[in-house]
Amino acid sequence: MSIDSAKISIQQVNKSFRVRRRPGDLKGSSQSVKALDHINLDVKPGEFMVIVGPSGCGKSTLLDLLAGLTTPTSGQILLDGKPITGPNLDRGIVFQQYALFPWKTALANVEFGLETKGVPRKERRAIAQEYIELVGLAGFEHRYPHELSGGMKQRIAIARSLAYDPEVLLMDEPFAALDAQTRESLQSELLRIWEATKKTIIFITHGIEEAVYLGQRVAVMTSRPGRIKEVIEVPFEARTSEEDLRAHPDFVRLRHQIWDLLKDEVKLAQEQEKDRSLQSGTGKISGKGAATHG
């Protein structure tokens, strides 16, 4: 695949954070921690790309970079051939913790991005309504987030991100906080929405089964510093019509293959986490804080 046909092109991206050795230590003994190491990945237009990796491998850092919330230490990320310089409505993000505005109704939440885009009120309402219907929550427009279940909140969050019609949908472990049944139903729902809207989706998860079920390709990341270990093609056509994809022999084989790639990394990540906890003495992972900060 050539670079200029890619929707998103991640080129030689490195990201390091400066962290203090000990919290509260003000005298410059900070060290540089490498979160991402030479990431290269191209995502085709309309592709469903899943990135899977052990916890703390820098998946969320990568997503922050894609969102434009932080900038890479070196390398660049191109969207339609143009480098990403900051956050913009051409990318929509769905967070694990929904991030709905609690003072706004479901409808007003979905309208939020459109408001920023400057869409007139009447049109905004119609579009928001349409996306609420798309995620199957017609009738819940005037509920506040606290009146909705976790699954419903995430549907509204997805509707909100789709409503302003981004080029790419970035999803950061969106179903991790949901119970197993809601998660499975939302996974198939997401595939249906993807087929209906033909969006490019970058989906981050630590669930292997979720990765194989959703992704057309699955990028497996190593433990910190995060690198792309391998990109695996998932060759299923029309997943939604498949009776029971999860029992398919190919599904089982792919799941096993990814698990093989991941298991050493998971072990390594756990070791690293232990070391960090011992070093800092607080058990906190400072890298995560640095990634979300700012």
Binding site: G86, P87, R91, G92, A99
Partner: peptide, 9 residues
């Protein structure tokens, strides 16, 4: 919420 709003530009 701030992150989410910032991501929407």
């Amino acid at each position: 919420l701030i992150r989410s709003a910032r991501s929407m530009g």
